[in-house]
Structure formats: C-alpha cells, structure tokens
Design a protein around this nucleic acid. Structure first.
Lengths: 117, 117
DNA sequence: GAATATACCTTGACAGGCGAAGTATATTGA
DNA sequence: TCAATATACTTCGCCTGTCAAGGTATATTC
C-alpha cells in the first residue's frame, strides 16, 4: 500500500463494491490482476488501490461464481499473467451491482445527513 | 426483518455506515435502540432497518469508544429503554464519517461506471 | 549481482453483520 | 382470562470480505 491512503477510504467503505469495480474494468476488455489495480490507481488519482490479497480473493470468487473466466497469457517476456474475461453472467451481475450501488447510495444519503446541521 | 428488503440492500453495502447513521440520529437528540430503528425505517420508507444484533452491537461499540453515553430511561410503563446521548467526540466522529462517506462515494462513482456503456 | 519492478499466490487473523434464541413488560382481542 | 402481539433489550456464535505477512518467479536496471 505504501501511503496511498486518501484520508480514510477504509476497506469497509469499499467493501461490497470490489466485485462491481473489477467487473466494470473487465467490460472494457480482458485484463489481469496487476493491470486492474493499476487502472484503479490511475482512475482514482493514486487515492486507492486494492490490497493484493483482496484483489486476488475477489477474482477467484468471481471466477467461482461464473462471472469471469481466466486463462494464462502467452507473454514471451516478463512475469506470467493470468488474464480474466467477463462472461454473460458477469455482465448481468454487473448491472445488478450498479443498481444495488445506486440504491445503497440513495439510502445512505438519506440516512447519514441531519436536517439543519 | 419480515420482508423489508428492498431489492438487494445487502449488509455489506451499508457496512461501515451504521455508526454514522446512528450518530446522525443522535445529533437530533437522545434516543433508544428501537426508536433509532423506527426512524431509519421511516426515513427509508420501509426499505431498510438494522438487524437488532447489528444495532445493539453498534451502540455498544460506539459507547466503548466514547462517542455516545447511555442511561436507563425512567418509564413508568412499558418495557425499559436504554437511552443514548452523543458526546462531543461523537459529533466530531460523525463529521469525519460523513467526509469519509463523501470520499468513498466519489471514488466508487468513478470506479464503478464504464464509459460508453 | 543486488535491487527493483512486474506478477501471482496462500495462510491466518480480524471485524462487522446477522441469524437465532432468550428475557421482560404492556396492550389487545377473542 | 389468557394467548398473541408489540415493545425493548441482550447474548452467542457463525459467516464473509478485507488484509497483513509471507512466499514464488521472471526481467530489467545500475
């Protein structure tokens, strides 16, 4: 992690969205663990990235439930990469998760603020 | 719970926000467990409420860290109520948690959507 | 040839959510 | 009258996702 915390984006606040974030990335095309994380780092302007264990736990979970499939890349150089591809089920799941996020967001917005404060 | 689920507002999506939601409620004045939950139910139009175990775990946690204090109400009728009052630390914590939420919200919004999809 | 970057993997601990069960009092209705 | 229901709080133990810590292997850079 090495100091990429932004204020307090604690894991618990992202918890439950890792899968959606990964699926969102894979909709744009096949990718591998490190690249997913690099992209998230870039998109968040260095404020966030998954812990490796979290990332790899998540992709394994997504593969198990049939949302993604994986294959080894045929790099002739550098470290080997395990690529992930989103499945049709993955695309549907993604849509559901986005709707879930929007519902949860609306709900939290309603519950977390105090009128007149 | 009895069928108050709204689509899939799973616990993991609210996880990390329970404390903020409870503190938000207590800023408006002292309250007790059942009332907090009733208020949340009302505010969410019946879509959400804490599981009892979650609620009482959370208030105990908040009391332990000094964010709230508690005292028994002197009801002459009905079941006894344990009232909670927010402390100064609780108010500060609340502000931090709201900021955390706003950061996390912005981050997730940035990471969960796919351009052109 | 040591350090660094890339890339992946595993284990075990931890914390929050929550199902399930229990306690106690007051009200409602048949 | 007494069973059911509502109010109100509590405890126990499981489950799941996060993550710290450690490990493997290859390629580049200095």
């Amino acid at each position: 992690m090495k100091g990429v915390w932004y204020l307090t984006i604690a894991g618990d606040l992202i918890r439950g969205h890792t899968d959606a974030i990964i699926l969102a990335h894979l909709i744009k095309g096949d990718s591998y663990g490190y690249e997913i994380n690099r992209d998230i780092q870039k998109k968040s302007q260095g404020r966030y990235e998954f812990k490796e264990a979290t990332l790899y736990t998540a992709v394994r979970r997504l593969e198990q439930c049939g949302c993604i499939t994986s294959y080894w890349g045929d790099e002739s150089t550098g470290a080997r990469r395990r690529y992930y591809a989103i499945t049709e089920l993955g695309r549907e799941t993604y849509k559901t998760l986005v709707r879930d996020w929007e519902n949860a967001r609306a709900l939290i917005n309603k519950l977390i603020y105090v009128e007149g404060v």
